[in-house]
């Protein structure tokens, strides 16, 4: 039982990270109908920026805040410069451009920072926290906490601010929003900026666990895809629940299903994606998109 609880808790911790990245994916998907294949690499790049600032001697939380600001501006610029020209192009063109972005970010990070793994500090104490027989890593708890704070922030932003309302309107009905004076193009750009920001949080939280290297997000990204698919690509709340679920499933399956162990972890994510897409393509909480012919 203790092992079970232990696995559930650490599953929730990694699940929180998947949830952040899945949320970033869903935010962009909802606003622009684009699945951003470069989301993981954008997060990775932001994490390297944070690493540079920490190395330059900035205090952790200053570097953290500065990274989020830079990530926001970076995401905004990427939308304006790279994605905008293919905004109305068919899916294939958009996917290819996103893949191009993925490859560029990955190789530029490798170029600047080399492919050698780097340790990344955690803001939380090293000492484990004991609760009964279950031991929590302080970083795990901290990661869950930070994810929750980010989610709360986003919820409040979208629910209670004019800008958030305008962004939701632009995503739902661009034409009417434009008639009401909402600058739809800029709303999309801000959406990309916010998604990059959320991704940066995920990157900074996961880097102490998996170490920093240009390919660190590949595995995380596939889990984020699985989470977003499970929760439903049209539901931000679903993405979060999906992320936590996938984190827990990953850990429990790794522990209890002998033939899977840790060696087939990515395959578990693949299986989740394929099964959900085949059985219930809209995910657990997504709405079924009806298309007029």
């Amino acid at each position: 039982m203790d092992i079970f609880l232990q696995q559930v808790v650490s599953g929730l911790a990694t699940g929180g990270i998947y949830a952040s990245l899945a949320l970033a994916l869903v935010m962009i998907y909802q606003a622009t109908d684009v699945v951003n294949f470069a989301q993981g690499e954008m997060a990775m790049f932001s994490t390297y920026l944070a690493w540079s600032m920490l190395n330059a001697g900035l205090p952790y939380w200053v570097a953290f805040a500065a990274t989020l600001a830079l990530a926001f501006v970076g995401g905004l610029l990427i939308e304006r410069i790279v994605i905008r020209p293919v905004e109305n192009a068919p899916v294939l063109a958009v996917v290819i451009v996103c893949i191009g972005l993925l490859v560029i970010l990955n190789s530029v990070a490798g170029w600047i920072y080399s492919y050698i793994q780097k340790p990344f500090p955690s803001p939380f104490p090293n000492a484990p926290i004991k609760l009964g027989n279950v031991v929590f890593g302080a970083h795990d708890l901290g990661a869950i906490g930070i994810t929750l704070v980010v989610l709360l922030f986003l919820y409040v932003f979208f629910r209670y601010t004019t800008l958030g309302l305008a962004m939701r309107a632009a995503a739902q009905n661009p034409v009417s929003s434009r008639l009401c004076g909402v600058r739809v193009g800029w709303m999309l750009a801000i959406g990309w900026g916010l998604a990059a920001l959320v991704g940066a949080v995920a990157g900074i939280m996961v880097a102490p666990i998996v170490f920093l290297d240009p390919n660190m997000m590949a595995g995380i990204l596939i889990y984020a895809f699985a989470s977003a698919t499970l929760g439903g690509f049209t539901s931000p709340g679903g993405a979060v629940v999906g992320g936590l679920l996938v984190g827990v499933i990953e850990n429990l399956v790794g522990t209890y299903v002998r033939f899977i162990g840790t060696e087939l972890k990515l395959t578990v994510a693949l299986a989740i994606i394929v099964i959900v897409l085949v059985v219930k393509p809209s995910g657990l909480f997504g709405r079924v998109v009806v298309r007029r012919v």
């Binding site: 699945v35 294949f37 899916v91 596939i222 895809f225 393509p281």
Partner: peptide
């Protein structure tokens, strides 16, 4: 199964396949 997946979703499923292959 890919029949049920259009456009983006197929890209997603095949991308995950590509990531999982070495494992």
């Amino acid at each position: 199964p890919a029949l049920r997946l259009e456009g983006l979703y197929l890209a997603l499923a095949t991308f995950s396949l590509a990531l999982a292959v070495p494992q």
